[in-house]
């Protein structure tokens, strides 16, 4: 089976791109592929823990935890997180912070890579 790398920098709840990426990742894992997700810029704030769950609205923390349990590697851009006043302790457990270099290496060694380059 192959591996997929996806980068995203879109705003977390103001856009539906996160929902798309999480669902696509889940489908990829269910197909037997390994997935690496790179979140940079505003998208990193969707990695904060303790997101309140409201009835019948988008809520991504549980989806992210589920993907982590399924072996998806989810990584936050270190400087993007830092400039937003977020620390590693604020992030969902199992989400490390790394540099852009990590993503470029992941993308260039993946069988399929995609960056969603919009806010």
């Amino acid at each position: 089976m192959g591996n997929i790398a996806i980068g995203i920098l879109t705003r977390p709840y103001g856009s539906r791109n996160i929902a798309f990426v999480l669902k696509l990742s889940k489908a990829a894992v269910e197909r037997g592929h390994s997935v690496k997700l790179w979140l940079s810029a505003d998208s990193t704030t969707v990695l904060k823990k303790n997101q309140h769950k409201y009835k019948k609205t988008f809520h991504f923390e549980d989806d992210i935890k589920e993907l982590l349990e399924k072996g998806v590697e989810i990584v936050a851009c270190e400087s993007c997180v830092g400039m937003r006043g977020v620390t590693e302790e604020d992030l969902i457990e199992g989400v490390p912070m790394k540099t852009m270099t990590w993503f470029m290496e992941a993308a260039l060694t993946a069988d399929a890579s995609l960056i969603i380059g919009e806010e």
Binding site: G7, L9, S40, A41, D42, C80, T99, M100, T101, F103, M104, E105, L108, T109, I115, G117, E118, E119
Partner: peptide, 21 residues
């Protein structure tokens, strides 16, 4: 912020150690 982030990704290519990008 997109254009700056894009350039940061490009600069990130230059510090990949496993292979030359």
């Amino acid at each position: 912020e997109v254009a700056s982030i894009a350039i940061d990704h490009a600069l990130g290519c230059l510090t990949v150690l496993e292979f030359e990008v």
